[in-house]
Nucleic acid binder design. Structure first.
Lengths: 347, 347
DNA sequence: ATGAAAGCGCTAACAA
DNA sequence: TTGTTAGCGCTTTCAT
């Protein structure tokens, strides 16, 4: 493999035509350039024989576009974002673009660098899901004149498509309140909220919805009902262990803010007997298909990842570039718990 | 935003120096070019003020490399592949490369097109996980002189890093056989295998390991113990429903070939009472954290996605380009089922 | 310590 | 119906 790559010049020379002709043939514009079919065929054939491969960097340099559609996610190993990636890929392919997906590990600096790199590759447009530093992203895209849309987490003064965190949390809280068994012990007879913080966009809205809904339905709400322990499963585990020990059992209602928090809770639950779960109603703000089959019923909120992506593409198509926020409704998923005979009344 | 992008020429003119100088300053080679520090600083400043952004396509065209590391996965929304993507991103970033991840939806044609596109962008190297048509991928990369490594599914005559499917399935089968409760009914007292096909690389090995292990431990093995129903959860659901109806219950051993097959099985299990699961031992060839907490114990195999990726990078670094197959061991994950009191003896 | 200039491979406007 | 040519923005060798 000492021979360097074949270019249109090589082919032109081989066939005794001009590079321009070869170019036209190879990129499909030869009909409008009214190039003879025999020439075209022959050129194609030579290209194939010599294993010609297009140099997209050269084309991109010339045309000032790359045909790349960029998508940035915080992490790949997360159902919600992975599902968005999937939808993004499909639609980008539909449009004959090359989807390029990058992740930032939630690091603002890496986010900025990634955006810069993508811009430097002359991407056609950029979607950013769960941005860490929306303002910087906005500034970079704007100055490079690259169309961009935020997903899941909105940017100020930019086009954004987000999930209805408030509405979803309200639904979930209502469901928990509805199905909360009545218990004697006053300290147990209250809904608790666990997981995440109050600093990120989504969690702030969810927590507010939880509070509003509890209060508006005449429930009590004290500070000790809110356990902000971040997203790490291990923290959630110790936090919920502490709670259950303080209270002497599971509270009758539990709003769990993410699937990772839930995993932590499960680690604590693992040693508990079945009756431990008899007097509680649990909701998780996230979706996982297997959680639906646990021995106790879990109410889950599934965000519409496909819907988010497809709306973002609609926004991109509408030439209206004014900032606007589109809100997509999530869905409440009922438990499918195996314990039909036991819990079905509160399912 | 009518002004077009700033280039090194603009900056050169602004400062009254030559484009070459600006280039050297902006790409960090100015020290070895022995350019004055004051000049360098000034040029940097002008670049910043004018929002200069590098054009990587131009650089790539010139240098014939792009600084892009390519990774192809079949799908994004899958724990195993998502985890590999994550590891890939991290390591590529470590090396100051831009990680680009694309998926093919298991479509060989899309796979080929994606490889071509990435090659056309002059990627530095390519990893392909779960390739659909390894031979085509090999041919394309080889002819473009792009280093490439297969992951999870090996290519003929190419460097590959794969999971030990045979060994993993053997472990899992052994564990199932060990923990299989003894039952009266002869038709139930056998291990069954469900899910996938016998055409793809991984499944072939797993099935073979299952058969070998069952036979080598003196077990019986008839055709009806093997249910190849593909990967769709819905197929798995009806298949397992049929099986349980034929047998009058769950067999005492069940080898489930993938998490999606398992999801299908759960859909059938959902209406069953607890005693339905009393006399069975279930193993799943895949890992899911929440499955570990189901009411009946699930033995799982977790493939070492990080290990696969890191070995692939090692292979890339070793300049030895000869084809070789590296095998990574998966891990058997014990159940953490909540039913400690009930199933702990067979856990 | 810096400038000049060639050229990476392709496209597209203009000629012929 | 095809050829010619001028760049796209950057790097890099050779001058100075």
């Amino acid at each position: 493999m000492t021979q360097s790559k074949t270019t249109i010049y090589d082919i032109a020379k081989l066939r005794g035509v001009s590079p321009g002709t070869v170019s036209a043939v190879l990129n499909g514009t030869w009909k409008q350039r009214r190039i003879g079919e025999k020439t075209a065929l022959k050129i194609q054939q030579i290209a194939d024989e010599h294993g010609y491969t297009l140099n997209l960097q050269a084309r991109g340099l010339r045309t000032a576009r790359s045909g790349i559609a960029g998508f940035i996610v915080p992490v790949h190993d997360n159902r919600f974002f992975a599902s968005m990636s999937h939808a993004f890929e499909a639609e980008a392919r539909n449009r004959d673009l090359c989807p390029v997906i990058a992740s930032t590990s939630r690091d603002p600096e890496q986010e900025a660098r990634t955006v810069e790199t993508l811009i430097a590759h002359a991407i056609d447009f950029l979607f950013i899901a769960g941005a860490n530093d929306p303002n910087t992203v906005s500034a970079l895209c704007k100055s490079a004149n690259v169309p961009y849309i935020f997903l899941d987490l909105p940017g100020e003064n930019a086009r954004s498509v987000v999930s209805n965190n408030y509405g979803g949390a309200e639904m979930l809280t209502r469901k928990i309140l509805e199905t909360m068994p009545s218990v004697e012990d006053a300290r147990l007879a209250k809904p608790y909220y666990i997981g995440g913080g109050n600093d990120d966009y989504a969690s702030t809205l969810r927590l507010k919805a939880f509070k509003d809904t509890v209060l508006s339905t005449g429930g009590q709400l004290a500070d000790d009902q809110i356990l902000l322990c971040g997203y790490a499963p291990s923290h959630a585990e110790s936090e919920i262990a502490g709670l259950c020990e303080r209270l002497g059992g599971l509270p009758s209602g539990l709003f769990i803010n993410s699937i990772r928090t839930f995993e932590g809770a499960l680690s604590y639950f693992v040693n508990k007997p079945a009756h431990f779960f008899a007097n509680t109603s649990i909701g998780v703000y996230d979706y996982d298909p297997i959680s639906a089959f646990l021995q106790f019923p879990i109410h889950m909120v599934r965000q519409d990842s496909k819907g988010l992506v497809s709306k973002a593409f609609e926004l991109l198509d509408s030439k209206d570039e004014s900032a606007r926020l589109i809100i997509i409704e999530p869905e409440l998923v009922a438990p499918r718990t195996i314990y039909g005979s036991f819990f079905s009344d509160i399912g």
